[in-house]
């Protein structure tokens, strides 16, 4: 990794070459409303990038732009350039192939109206895995990694929506892992999950970092502190700063507002 250089990621060519995702001058609008303004940021390989900021600061909008989910949201406009492994994501010819490499976990678990097994087997099936034994193996591996296997191994054929909220959230994490993503986007994954399960999932994320890049949007400043290698602070559409988490939390900030926010001295 690029030691200490250009924490904001923009323009630094060494960083641009080694980063997983490079975001340049990203502006997101909903009609006249600007949700994110001129964001420059990169996501490195094998890092957890924490994204913090008060409600409405543009965190979810940022994630949506990363896998081109803006296409489903009427009125959402995205400007600027995002590259994924060096490829401009606006220019890829098969957006589905791009999305299949990006796992997404939504704030509230969305258990598809399928069985537990089928929820996890869907993505492998979509990419053409047909063999039962192979699917079984993928399903078990992903459920184990999401710390859910022991609880559901006897009810793989019951509806995913019948699991408890925390179990459903781990099911969506297992589903995201079944894509074998190289980028995992988590949007406030823990708001419907109890503290014990949250800790278990956090341990899983620390492990997963060895295989992929993770963007962790969170309202819990302490969660960013525990997990993130670097932390980005957004404030009403403005990218205030991105720095090593350790630096930010030891008070070394470029902007006093960051310090105020993590100290809880904000609205």
């Amino acid at each position: 990794m690029v030691a200490g250089g250009a924490p904001n990621g923009g323009g630094a060519s060494a960083e641009a070459l080694s980063a997983k995702v490079v975001v340049q001058n990203l502006t997101i609008r909903y009609g006249n409303h600007v949700a994110l303004r001129g964001l420059d940021l990169s996501i490195r390989r094998n890092e957890i990038l924490g994204v913090i900021g008060p409600a409405g600061s543009g965190k979810t909008s940022f994630l949506r732009a990363l896998n081109r989910m803006d296409e489903f949201i009427p009125g959402m406009e995205v400007e600027g350039r995002i590259t994924f492994d060096g490829r401009d994501i606006r220019r890829v010819r098969n957006v589905y192939a791009l999305r299949s490499r990006i796992g997404v976990v939504f704030p509230l678990p969305v258990g598809l109206p399928l069985t537990v097994y089928e929820n996890v087997a869907l993505a492998p099936r979509l990419r053409g895995v047909r063999k039962g034994s192979e699917l079984d193996e993928i399903v078990e591996r992903c459920l184990r990694r999401a710390a859910l296997w022991e609880e559901v191994k006897d009810r793989l054929d019951s509806l995913g929506s019948l699991l408890s909220g925390g179990q459903q959230q781990r099911l969506t994490i297992a589903r995201a892992l079944s894509q074998e993503p190289d980028l995992l986007l988590l949007d406030e994954f823990s708001i419907a999950v109890d503290p014990v399960t949250t800790m278990r999932i956090e341990d899983v994320l620390k492990d997963l970092k060895n295989e992929m890049s993770i963007v962790l949007v969170t309202n819990l400043v302490q969660q960013a502190r525990r997990l993130a290698d670097r932390t980005a602070f957004f404030l009403t559409g403005e990218h205030v700063e991105t720095s090593d988490t350790a630096r930010i939390f030891s008070g070394i900030v470029k902007d006093p507002r960051t310090h105020d926010y993590i100290e809880g001295r904000f609205g």
Partner: peptide, 12 residues
Amino acid sequence: DGYREAAEALGA
């Protein structure tokens, strides 16, 4: 809509 969004996010 959450179902659709979740499935599209999988790359469907």
